[in-house]
Amino acid sequence: MQRSQAEPLPELADAPLSAEDEEAVPFPRLLPRLLTTGGLVGLAAAFTLSIEKIALLKNPAYVPSCSLNPVLSCGSVMNTPQAEAFGFPNPLLGVAGFAIVTTVGVAMLAGAALPRWFWMGLQAGVTFGVVFVHWLIYQSLYVIGALCPYCMVVWAVTIPLFWYVTLHSLRRLRTAHSVIGYHAVPLTLWFLAVITAIGIRFWSYWSTLL
């Protein structure tokens, strides 16, 4: 660098800095939007599930709005012990968690720069979420043997939330860099894997619908 320190040219100071900025934050537009919309969608699903749970408690004969057929049946999922993994209905976790995610997204949209510890907290939250969701997927498919549409909305939202927050957290790692470039590919494979598992598990049922 030969230029004088006293008067850096605006272009000079600008160009490399902004490039570095974008490198530092891999998804400057995607992540806040994802957190906001994903949080809202997850919140809506968790809230609906809570309402359905309350209706079911008031009247055990109540048939939830998402009990469509033997496979797509919230009722048979919501009445299992797995639906209260921590001793209270799971959607309560979702209502709190997704509200936080939405708020973080909106704060980022508003231009907030969040400190490292804050991101670590969010990372801890989405990691817990994604592990829990995969346990629920396993339970739903192979133990309960039914699917609950609202729960599947939560699955579909939690996976990308985890994925992009994690890429954001790992952005300084060299290996993460190549993944960040092709961020949608692992996510696509992830979704297809879950869809395949659902397809195979309930194949005999889906084939009756054709």
């Binding site: 000079l12 160009a15 490399p16 974008e22 470039g181 092709y182 949608a184 590919v185 696509t188």
Partner: peptide, 24 residues
Amino acid sequence: RAKISAMREQEERARRRNKNLTIS
């Protein structure tokens, strides 16, 4: 040079974005 390298980087990013989409 800085401008060119910024442009190159932008192109590179666009290319990767396209590849990302195409592969998915």
